[in-house]
Amino acid sequence: MGSTPQARRGDTRQRIQDVAMELFAEQGYEKTSLREIAERLDVTKAALYYHFKTKEDILISLFQDLARPLDELLDWGRQQPRTLETKQELVRRYSVALQSALPLFRFMQQNQAAMSHLRPGETLKDRMIAMTNLLRDPDAALPDQVRSLSALFVMHTAIFAMQHIEADPEDKRKAVLEVALDLLAQAHPGEQAHPGEGVGDAPDAS
């Protein structure tokens, strides 16, 4: 999921995904045709059809690539104690996954009308709900539940809110992560995270 278009150039399926995302970003999902994708790739439509029959198939494949490491992270989280340490590790790994998926999230923002009736949007929504369930303690005070949920949503909103802030992308990611971790810590008064204690190895989200 963290691969760059340059590193993935030898894989035809992934080249199609990369070029499709470029065109979706340039002119919108609805205005992009399979013919234009094939032309930019310099392949025939028949060659493109071998991998994807429709634009939505390409989009679904992109969401599946995003969902795979998220599913692994969610599975890991369900097997861990519901401690501050576990929740902060979930957020750390999720932060890396989000950074790798920035082009897809920007696509979602720019093509909200198209996303409203496309299947991938519901798939991602289900995973966001699952993540919030792992972060939120239903027995906690309501303000602390809000803080736990805000830790997740601050990372999502920051993707767009910080686009025009001039700073190194990794520095911005770390700053947002710091705020998210602080919110989680505030939601667990009296509890301290002890790195490496009581938490199994989390899957690599990159």
Rank of each mutant, 00 (worst) to 15 (best):
E89F: 03
R136F: 11
K125W: 13
D75G: 14
S95L: 07
G77L: 08
L90H: 01
E72G: 10
G200P: 09
S100W: 07
H156Q: 13
D18Y: 06
S206G: 07
P143S: 07
R82P: 07
E85S: 14
P203Q: 03
N133P: 01
T4S: 15
V146P: 00
N111L: 05
A46D: 09
L59A: 05
Q163M: 10
L134K: 13
A67M: 14
Q99T: 15
R173L: 11
V91K: 03
Y49G: 04
T157G: 04
E170R: 14
G198S: 03
L118R: 14
T12G: 00
R35Y: 09
S33D: 01
I129M: 12
V176D: 02
S148T: 08
V154H: 03
Q17D: 04
I37F: 06
R92C: 10
H164S: 13
L74I: 15
L184S: 04
L124Q: 11
I159N: 04
D144S: 08
M131V: 12
P169C: 06
E30G: 00
R173C: 03
A202W: 09
T123C: 02
R147F: 11
Q27M: 10
Q6H: 09
A130I: 01
A205V: 01
E89R: 08
F107V: 11
K31T: 12
R119V: 15
A20W: 11
N111T: 07
G200A: 11
M115K: 07
E166V: 15
D42A: 13
L73E: 02
A38D: 05
L118A: 14
F63D: 05
P189G: 03
L59H: 10
P169M: 13
M21F: 08
Q6N: 07
D11C: 03
T54V: 05
E122V: 08
V96M: 07
E72F: 00
K31L: 15
A97D: 00
V146Y: 14
S61P: 02
A130T: 11
A205P: 02
E170N: 09
